[in-house]
């Protein structure tokens, strides 16, 4: 292994943990735990601060890191993050346009368009349509037609608490759910383009989140 996944550095009141920005997060997290075990004595004399830096750390990743720290040190420490980019693994969609926010159920025949991102708090019923230049997030059941990245942005995503669209379009790719049985159980899902296909993944499953 040529490059260390994790480098430790002493700072005032504690240590700085510099994480490699290219390696998979799972590996980085594992290495962090290992390194912390080696320096556990360091925290016995009152040091109480850990500063993570070196890569963008998402919300779920932060939870994993904090859990690892707690497991090893068995005491309260201040965990801080030093990152350059946005903390959450959400894609930046459209610069300049704050997007649109719709509250309430969208019914058949209704249509909401946004020149930025689009957030709907409520259900989107069959026959309703959502069209956005950026990403679309539905905090409810998505049963209608949705088109994210309608100007061709293949990085656009669609997320819904309950994903059951009549048709799902991202950029110039159109998909529809397979004919036949509906999913018995519902979990929040996220749709994105990978290798020219639209994939829909469980949003809560950590592994899927970390891939982004």
């Amino acid at each position: 292994m040529g490059k260390e996944a994790v480098t430790l550095k002493g700072i005032k009141d504690g240590i700085m943990v510099i994480l490699d920005s290219d390696m998979p997060f799972g590996q980085v997290c594992e290495q962090t735990a290992k390194k912390l075990c080696e320096v556990i004595d360091f925290f016995k004399d009152g040091s109480s601060r850990i500063l993570f830096s070196g890569r963008i750390i998402g919300a779920m990743e932060r939870i994993s890191l904090e859990q690892a720290v707690m497991d090893i040190l068995q005491r309260d420490v201040t965990v801080e993050y030093q990152t350059d980019g946005p903390g959450l693994p959400v894609r930046q969609a459209v610069k300049g346009d704050p997007g649109k926010f719709h509250r309430g159920t969208l019914r058949s025949g209704q249509s909401v368009k946004s020149s930025g991102n689009l957030v709907v708090i409520g259900d989107v019923n069959p026959g309703a349509e959502l069209i956005a230049v950026g990403n679309v997030v539905v905090m409810g059941c998505l049963r209608g037609i949705v088109h994210a990245g309608c100007n061709g942005d293949k990085n656009a995503i669609v997320a819904a608490v309950k994903m059951a669209p009549t048709q799902l379009r991202i950029a110039d790719i159109i998909t529809r759910p397979p004919d036949g049985e509906e999913d018995a159980q519902w979990v929040p899902e996220i749709a994105y383009i990978k290798d020219g296909n639209i994939y829909i993944d469980d949003y809560l499953s950590r592994n899927n989140l970390l891939k982004n």
């Binding site: 969208l106 019914r107 058949s108 026959g127």
Partner: peptide, 12 residues
Amino acid sequence: VRDADRIIGLLE
């Protein structure tokens, strides 16, 4: 039900 949904939207 689909038509009722449309009608509810129009009523509102």
